[in-house]
Simulated assay, not measured.
Amino acid sequence: SHERYLSNPEERRIYHSSMADYYLGIWAARPKPFQYSEQQRRMFNIESAESEADRKVPAQPLIFTISDATATVSTTPTVRYNLRKLSELPYQLIRSQREDDLYKNVLFNYDFMHAKLSCMPLNLCIFDYESALEFFFDKEVRLVSDALRLSSSVLASDPNNLICQVIGRLFPFYETCHKIASLIDQCESTGLQVMGLVPAFNTLASPGGPLVYSLEAHAFAVYGLEVISSGQSLLTVSNRFIVFDLSSGDIVRIIDPRIEGIMTYLALAPDQRYCVTTTISNQYIICSLLTGDFILRDYQPTGGNTTKTNSKTNTGQPTEPLLGAHTSNTHFVLWTAKMYQVYTNKGISFRY
């Protein structure tokens, strides 16, 4: 079908442009011009080839608001986002090579950005900017894309913070980049309907510097991290295991062992199938990175796996606190200031 209908680049661009017109709602509630063919003119005895007609094209708002007839004044109307428009319009405008419409209605349009962030993952919004850059490079598109990536952790939790992030990061470019200036103006006018806190100055890190994005998901300090999956993901530990996607900053997996305190050391197996961590409570955790299963055990200096011994002082501190760990594909070792102990990757004591 692609070879039959879309092999001609110009025809393909026209088809994409027509689809873009549909999602833009250009011909909604208004007549659309068309031309009669020569055969139609002779058949219906029409003099002029030019004509127009209302094609009953539906409007394409970003948000459909449904009001209940029985609702009271204080009842909030039901909001449904136009998912097809939010996903299709950028695609059609990019492939129809309509740069100006793409910038005006999508990439530098506050209402479109806020609606898409409210109903879709942030990486899909960033994907629109990255796709545009594949067809035509624009410095301002790159700046907004990088600003959204820097704000990923904040926008993922609350899209209404878009105003603060855009102005706080892009304000230095207001005088030199007119499309960014237009976006900031929209934030300061339309955006006030959802967020009243508007920065007056450049309060956040601007794009273009060494910081790409921040990974903010841990409630406590991170005491261990490792790059995994051939450089595609980052494993971090605090009181939970959290794996981030390094290409987007999104959270891939959260493993919560429900420990008291935090983990203090992380050791990753060479084949990256499992890892071992130690905690401030003198426990060790064996976690499978393939399945998410984990084994949590108290460290026993005597080498026993089940026998409980008094390994803490009167102050509650362990007499032999774990200082670190090291792993191979089949075994791992834990050590204190006085001794070390070897285990299999299933947690069975092997030698001490």
Score class of each variant (00 low, 15 high):
150 L>G: 04
187 C>W: 07
8 N>S: 04
170 L>P: 08
130 E>Q: 11
18 S>K: 14
230 S>R: 14
25 G>W: 07
100 D>V: 13
62 L>A: 13
93 L>F: 02
10 E>S: 12
217 A>R: 05
295 I>M: 09
127 F>W: 07
205 A>L: 13
289 L>W: 04
248 S>T: 15
86 L>H: 05
252 V>K: 01
171 F>T: 15
57 V>D: 03
272 Q>I: 02
106 V>Q: 05
219 A>N: 13
274 Y>P: 04
175 E>C: 09
273 R>P: 00
4 R>D: 15
307 T>K: 03
12 R>W: 00
125 C>S: 10
343 Y>W: 00
6 L>S: 11
119 C>H: 01
17 S>V: 08
191 G>A: 05
305 N>P: 09
298 D>N: 10
57 V>I: 12
207 P>D: 10
310 N>R: 12
61 P>C: 07
107 L>F: 02
295 I>S: 06
97 Q>E: 15
145 S>G: 05
339 M>T: 14
98 R>I: 03
143 L>M: 07
304 G>S: 15
238 S>A: 15
58 P>Y: 01
18 S>I: 10
5 Y>F: 15
34 F>Q: 09
75 T>W: 06
93 L>P: 00
340 Y>T: 13
274 Y>C: 06
323 L>I: 04
249 G>W: 02
63 I>C: 06
145 S>A: 14
278 T>I: 15
239 N>C: 11
145 S>R: 05
95 R>C: 00
12 R>E: 06
80 R>I: 14
115 A>P: 01
156 A>K: 08
304 G>H: 15
198 V>M: 00
233 S>L: 10
229 S>M: 03
349 S>L: 03
163 I>K: 08
335 W>N: 15
198 V>G: 01
188 E>A: 11
286 I>T: 09
315 T>C: 07
31 P>E: 15
187 C>K: 06
320 E>R: 10
262 I>A: 04
181 A>P: 03
18 S>G: 01
289 L>A: 03
59 A>I: 07
207 P>V: 10
251 I>V: 15
47 E>R: 14
212 V>C: 02
89 L>R: 01
122 L>H: 11
284 Y>W: 14
144 V>W: 02
312 K>C: 05
87 S>E: 09
167 I>K: 00
301 P>T: 08
243 V>H: 04
257 P>Y: 11
6 L>C: 12
88 E>F: 11
168 G>R: 10
80 R>W: 07
193 Q>N: 09
124 L>P: 05
107 L>W: 00
257 P>N: 10
318 P>G: 03
110 Y>N: 03
